[in-house]
Amino acid sequence: MLTIREFDTRAGERFADGEIPGFVHLYVGEEAVGVGACAALEEDDYITSTHRGHGHCIAKGLDPKLMMSEIYGKRDGYCNGKGGSMHIADVDSEMLGANGIVGAGPPLGTGAALSISQKGEDRIALSFLGDGAVAQGQVHEAVNLASTWDLPVVFLIENNQYGEGTAVSDQHNAKNLSDTAAAYDIPGINVDGMDITAVNEAVTEARKRARNGEGPTLIEAETYRFHGHFEGDQELYRDEEEVEDWRKRDPIDTFSERLIERDELSEEELGEMREDIEMEIEDAIEYAKNADDPTPDEAYEDMFSQRVPDIDLFVEQANARADGGTRGGEF
């Protein structure tokens, strides 16, 4: 949780300074959900993420250096700098991608679970999705199919109370989004997303069900993003008092206080952890800043596993244009 907090806080600062291209959607405040969930998974379990995916990536064990490089648009990034913040993916870590399309994760999660089922593997898939995604048609299709075929997948709704600038109550009549599970005849569980132990326990139980062939579980974790929808959001849809109320329930503060009270962590150890993580993220930023940009040629790489004649022709023509018309013809 500390690494995610530091990573996203610094990414927000660097974005504000104009160093980072595109958009960043920060996970600050929601750390207990990603970490509680991924801590309940085995290493080879799949996850699918959302547009607010940095926290999921770190919780799944991705390298902050390569993540930061991706956000900076550098060649060393997880997607060679072509994806940016909303498209970090690392199939080798069973992280099937952050996703700029709201609600696009669950169909991938259901697909991954179908492959697990077909191959008879001993693992599961977990899809993170937001409260806004619950209103998307493809989410219904994904959950329904997973339920019908008893696939080993967990759907974890991060209800951060707003879909962009629209309050949950203005998007859904269901008081708890987990209540929608009844329509699929699967368990629906509502947990406190600011409490890492509650999220971890709910996902542990859901994973057990999935592995036992009992099908999917829909978990709703009630949480809050301390920053705006995106960096630069004026946040006209909520007042400061509400943000302050949620900040009092900061998942890092409450969990570290609990560990200290129980003598499982000392103030000194917590301080050392914070210092180490600050250095790690500073290193990641420096690494990303100094890494190479991809060349224009590379824009056409990593698109298809086999050569596609039309793409080859397109590249040839584009190169010709770049050369001032000395190579190739018109297109």
Partner: peptide, 10 residues
Amino acid sequence: RSFIGTRALL
């Protein structure tokens, strides 16, 4: 169990 978690005594 050492935490309240999801509350139910499982």
